[in-house]
Nucleic acid binder design. Structure first.
Lengths: 249, 249
DNA sequence: AATTAGATTTGACAATGTCAAATTCGTTGC
DNA sequence: GCAACGAATTTGACATTGTCAAATCTAATT
């Protein structure tokens, strides 16, 4: 582990949390000397990863990070396979479809297929949602023992709504149910008024690489039984295209 | 400039160009010792910026870079201001609307408003286009003398189509015309069949922060005169919201 | 005009990253 | 099934290079 590279990434992490921040505040948060942070920041700035606001002298993320992010999306085989199946799933069910990957304790959305009814929706690619509070996250955690244990051990089950599972035992039970049905559900656990169904996607090494699911407004919950079947089937189809030997896990 | 941080960013740059690449190839391209690259890569990997492919042992970008990129978009005041005006411009003109920022020699799209006719389109946020070969790029370069000179001096006017301006003199002339009309045009210079109009956006310090423009299919070119007016007006309105003292430059 | 908060620069020291060689791992050819 | 190869990884010594504390500069504020 190279110290200065590690510190540079931590600086980016702070910048990610605080949109516009002064050099000395970054130094304080990371418990580093301002001069150390300055050297790192100037290096990042030279590559366009960080910008200095002209007026306030404070720092923020730069455009180079977006370019990197876009290349990541392009290289993701999961995403390219999910594209066509998402359209199909959205058409069949009438709901918005999301595909996500698992970060240490969050799910990151790598594709968002809007509801086919054409209602205007926010662009959601790149957003992150706590893994324990969404169907996509539970679908993946249910089949990723290490990640699940790490999350449970970290004790970071942040509460999002009244329905969020914040107790390890509660989450463990929901994951067991997810495995039983090969389908994860979510009822207003992350966002009030929003429910969801999701199923895990496996790759050629039989490991979870992602999950796909539908977003269902509370008013339309529970969804028709055919929706659950369609989500499972879509996840199985994508898994097969990725070379998964079997589905589920 | 901190050497190892600089090298880490160069490693990311190589990963950006080559989707899946071996450690020794990265080392060769950067003229570094494999062991040096290994230390950097493992640090990046620990933070999820880089992933190692299970089968081939090769490396690729990781999800953490996408998360960073998304935060950049959220912090961009240009983008939030452009959102509502883009919808309006798309509605008035009937064309897809793009907003972009200027990198050293490319334009990066930070917002894409689809054509209001509802035709299905690719998501284009995060893609980059050579600055000298698109209307957005020329709109910004025309009012950014340093960036223009740097680009002309670099001699990197890559040819995209037969119409691309690859000679410095040719580009200089087109930029002069852009300033004269306060509007940049593009006729199949980047992509065959695609034309465009764009105007620059200025911030409170009277510097160019971006550009907004419409994408026009070759078959519908030239567009009605009202389109040019609508593009200029939109750029002026966004500039005013950002606190620009005057428009153009 | 003085004060303060913050960004930046400087220079010495020692921690730290770098390099070359050695080792391990997996794959291909015989 | 064994050997040879290519590639990733590990190790340890050396010297480069990042780090820290103090000093300087800059720009707001009173």
């Amino acid at each position: 582990m190279i110290q200065s590279v590690d510190r540079a990434i931590r600086v980016l992490g702070v910048l990610q949390g605080a949109r516009l921040i002064s050099l000395s505040e970054i130094a304080t948060r990371l418990e580093l000397h301002p001069s150390t942070v300055h050297g790192i920041i100037k290096t990042l700035q030279a590559h366009g990863m960080v910008l200095q606001d002209a007026g306030s002298q404070r720092y923020r993320l730069g455009p180079a990070v977006l370019k990197l992010g876009n290349v990541y999306l392009d290289t993701l085989e999961l995403r390219s396979r999910a594209l066509s199946w998402s359209t199909e799933l959205a058409r069949r069910t009438g709901y918005a479809v999301r595909t996500g990957v698992l970060l240490p304790d969050e799910v990151m959305i790598v594709h968002h297929e809007p509801r086919p009814d054409g209602s205007r929706q926010m662009q959601e690619v790149g957003i992150v949602i706590p893994a324990h509070a969404c169907a996509l996250g539970k679908a993946m955690l249910a089949y990723s023992p290490e990640q699940r244990d790490a999350l449970l051990a970290s004790g970071a089950l942040r509460s999002m709504t009244a329905e969020t599972a914040t107790e390890p035992a509660q989450l463990t039970e929901r994951l067991a149910q997810t495995r039983q049905e090969a389908l994860a559900t979510e009822q207003e656990e992350a966002v009030i008024g929003e429910c969801g169904l999701a199923a895990p996607i496996f790759d050629a090494s039989a490991a979870v690489t992602g999950a796909i699911g539908v977003v269902i407004p509370m008013l339309e919950w529970p969804a028709a039984d055919t929706v659950a079947g369609a989500v499972r089937e879509t996840a199985r189809n994508i898994s097969r295209e990725l070379g998964a030997p079997h589905w589920p896990g």
